[in-house]
Design a binder for these strands. Structure first.
Ligand SMILES: [Mn+2]
Ligand SMILES: [Mn+2]
Ligand SMILES: [Zn+2]
Ligand SMILES: [Zn+2]
Lengths: 164, 164
DNA sequence: AGTAATGTGAAATTGAATATCAAAAGCAGA
DNA sequence: TCTGCTTTTGATATTCAATTTCACATTACT
C-alpha cells in the first residue's frame, strides 16, 4: 500500500512543473555534494528564482529579479551561481548575436536550437533530428569528434515582417 | 587578335590567386568610389596584407602583421578598414566561441559554415546544401524570413583526439 | 565554541569593441 | 602648384559585459 502511493506520487511529481523544480533542486544538491560545495542561503534563493523564470535570462535580468526580493545579494554571486547551474547541468549558457550571455533551463536530455527575430528579439526553439544527423556526418567525414554545436537562424518573425 | 588575347588573360587572371587579388582590389576601389571614400596609402597597405592572409584573422592579428612592415599604422585604422572590407563585400565578420571577431575572405557568392577544433583552434570550412534547405523549411514553418544563420560545430579534430 | 575552508559582495580589472578629436592627408577647383 | 574644405588617421579614451580580487562572513566539522 505505502509503496504504491509513493510510486504514484513520484510519477505525478515528475509530470508537473513543481516536479521539475524539485527534480532540479535535487540535481543541484547532488552536484553540490559531489563537488564539496557548501549549502548557502544565497544559492537556494537564486535557484528558486531561476527556476521560476520561463525565458532566456541574462545575468543582469536574474540579478535584478533576485535583488527585488533580496537586496543584499550581489551581482557576482548571481553570476557565479548561474555558472554553477550550468556546470550542474540544469542550465545552459547561450550566446546570441547581441553579445549578452543568457541562461536557459535544461530539461533532462533535451536539446534544441534557436530561431531569433532581429526585429522584436523573440526566440523560438526548434529541434531537427535530420540536421543533427547531417552534422554528425560532416564531422565524421573530417575526423572530428563533436562536443557541441551552435545553430541559430536570424531573421524576422511573421509579425515583424508585416510591421516592418 | 587583341580581343582574344585580352579574353585569355582575363580568364587566366580569375583562375589564379593573383587574379583573385586583382579582382578584390578592383571591387574595393569600386566600393570606395561609390561611397565617395578617399584613396589612402593605409587602406592600400591593409588591403594588400589582408589579401595575403589565408586564415581567419582577428583585428589584432592583422594589426600585428601590418605593424611589422608599417609601424606607423594604428590599430583603429586596421579596425575601421576591416569593417570597410566587410561592407564592400570582400570580407566577412565571423564570431566564434572565443569572443573575438575574425575576418575571412569572401569569394563571390560562396557560403560556408565552420567546424572548430577546441583543442588546436583549427577551423575547417564546410557547406551542406541539405542543411541549408532544412533551415529554410524550419523558418517557413514558423513564418520567419531568414536573413542569416550561424552553424558552428565544436569539437576535437582527428589529431587532437589522439594527442588529448 | 574553535578552526579551517569556502562563499559572499563591493569594487577593481580585464579585454574587446567602439568613439573621440586634433593633426595629417586627399582632392577639387583657382 | 596653392587653397580651402573634407575625410582619414592614430593615439587615446570610453564603454560594457565578463571575470577576478580580497577583506569579511558563513559553513562544516570536531
Ligand atoms: Mn532555448
Ligand atoms: Mn571560413
Ligand atoms: Zn519579431
Ligand atoms: Zn585540433
Amino acid at each position: 500500500m505505502t509503496t504504491i502511493i509513493a510510486v504514484d506520487t513520484l510519477i505525478f511529481m515528475f509530470n508537473t512543473e513543481d516536479g521539475m523544480i524539485l527534480e532540479k533542486k535535487k540535481a543541484f544538491n547532488e552536484f553540490a555534494q559531489s563537488k564539496g560545495l557548501r549549502s548557502t542561503r544565497q544559492r537556494d534563493i537564486i535557484l528558486d528564482i531561476f527556476l521560476s523564470t520561463h525565458q532566456h535570462v541574462s545575468v543582469e535580468d536574474l540579478y535584478l529579479k533576485v535583488k527585488a526580493s533580496h537586496p543584499g545579494i550581489g551581482y557576482a554571486t548571481v553570476y557565479r551561481t548561474l555558472k554553477l547551474f550550468s556546470e550542474a547541468g540544469l542550465a545552459r549558457e547561450i550566446l546570441l548575436h547581441d553579445g549578452q550571455t543568457r541562461y536557459e533551463h535544461v530539461l533532462a536530455g533535451e536539446h534544441h536550437d534557436h530561431l531569433v527575430c532581429t526585429g522584436c528579439n523573440a526566440i523560438i526553439e526548434f529541434e531537427d533530428e535530420t540536421i543533427e544527423k547531417l552534422q554528425d556526418e560532416i564531422a565524421a567525414r573530417h575526423g572530428f569528434l563533436i562536443r557541441r554545436h551552435k545553430l541559430e537562424l536570424y531573421g524576422l518573425c511573421a509579425r515583424c515582417r508585416n510591421i516592418g
